[in-house]
Design a protein around this nucleic acid. Structure first.
Lengths: 223, 223
DNA sequence: ATCATCGCTATTGTATACAAACACCCCTCG
DNA sequence: CGAGGGGTGTTTGTATACAATAGCGATGAT
């Protein structure tokens, strides 16, 4: 899982660290950020911090006031709703593209992943669904589809739209039935891919993500 | 008082300059880029060049090979087709959102802009349509709509998708009739906004951009 | 008392120096 | 003759020093 290519690099560490600070709520929305303070926290110099900040700014995690001062962005419920809407639109498009391009190997991988998801969410003898496993495999499932869509641009846009903390909060709110339904929707996607039916795949993916949005909306605030 | 904008900033100049080099074809797709050479060309140090390159990389103008070396990305016709498809989807969404949010002032501005567009493309006594004016006003027209959609995230994504060189090439290929049809489509959009009809606006915008794509596709290669 | 103006300070923007990593090439050895 | 290994030079990554600038407060005038 080479999700983070260069984790040893200071600029990448800075990006991850600052992003984590914001998403965890450790720094309140609206509070000012200074490059030097962040550099101290992360333990690197201002140079990699600046690169991380530019990236976070382009992803709307932080905003500039007056052209210079940096502040933690304040994501409203409407902002998150818009992210879900865009994600639904774009990831459904990715699914439609993937339907006509997917390789046999990728199809097999999707099936294998979803088998693991099904296993993770079916309460066996133990204490209940394995949310951690669900999140890992679910993420991989969606990654494979985006990859198979063959559009690096789409992948780049979606990367800024799919926030794992949001996904986690959504999954944590899912009931066992809802988790199972997620797995079922995945299997329907696989059927659509098998049939090479782009519009079928698009519809399933749209529904899949919009349902996630509504589960998220009923979840309590993060903090 | 009057902010000079970020144009005077070295990092912004570097971004514009390098982007222009790539879009104009001055540096061939696939050719390697070194930070120092670019710094010399732009006339700034490597630091702002690096910031510009990070941004250009996130916008897929350049790619990294082996994690470090930089190359000019090679946009195929398929890549551009995909950009048009995504742009159509997202800008149509922007139009739909704008339909229910647009202010009276913005509506009036759209009407004024489109009046100027109509004037620019109607061949009066002079030598023909004023393409430069068309491009300026057309750009502004679309900017107002994206702005009125009230989604900074959508605006940020679209900014990376709407390439003025591509638009210019498209417009240069338009016949006088097609330019007039563009203005007519704009006026239909204004009608949809007046009616606060989101789906009408979405449809018009989709058609507007897809037609532009097909005009672009029949245009000769850039160089 | 309120407002404008001036100057200081905190913070960002840029350049440069240095360190590390990678690629390439040559040389040696099997 | 081919393959592997190290050396070398180029390129990127990071830190630090310095310059510029925006914000903020003090100070004084009206």
């Amino acid at each position: 899982m080479a999700t983070t290519g260069s984790i040893s690099k200071a600029s990448e560490r800075a990006y991850q660290a600052i992003r984590a600070l914001i998403l965890s709520g450790s720094v309140a929305p609206g509070s000012p950020l200074t490059e030097e303070a962040l550099a101290d926290i992360v333990g690197v110099s201002r140079t990699p911090v600046r690169e991380a900040l530019r990236r976070l700014e382009s992803e709307l995690y932080i905003t500039r006031s007056g052209g210079t001062r940096l502040f933690v962005a304040n994501w409203s419920h409407d902002d998150i709703a818009e992210m879900f809407t865009l994600r639904a639109m774009l990831e459904a498009h990715a699914a439609a593209r993937a339907a006509t391009r997917i390789t046999a190997a990728a199809l097999a991988e999707l099936a294998a992943i979803n088998a693991r998801i099904t296993k993770a969410v079916s309460h066996g003898s133990d204490s209940g669904p394995d949310i951690a496993a669900f999140l890992t495999e679910n993420r991989r499932f969606h990654e494979v589809i985006i990859d198979q869509s063959g559009s690096p641009r789409l992948a780049a846009i979606l990367a800024t739209l799919v926030e794992q903390p949001v996904v986690r909060r959504t999954a944590a709110r899912y009931s066992a039935q809802e988790l199972a339904r997620s797995a079922h929707e995945h299997s329907q996607l696989i059927q659509a891919f098998n049939a090479r039916d782009a519009e079928w795949a698009r519809s399933i993916m749209t529904a899949h993500i919009r349902r996630a949005f509504h589960a998220f909306s009923t979840a309590p605030p993060a903090k």
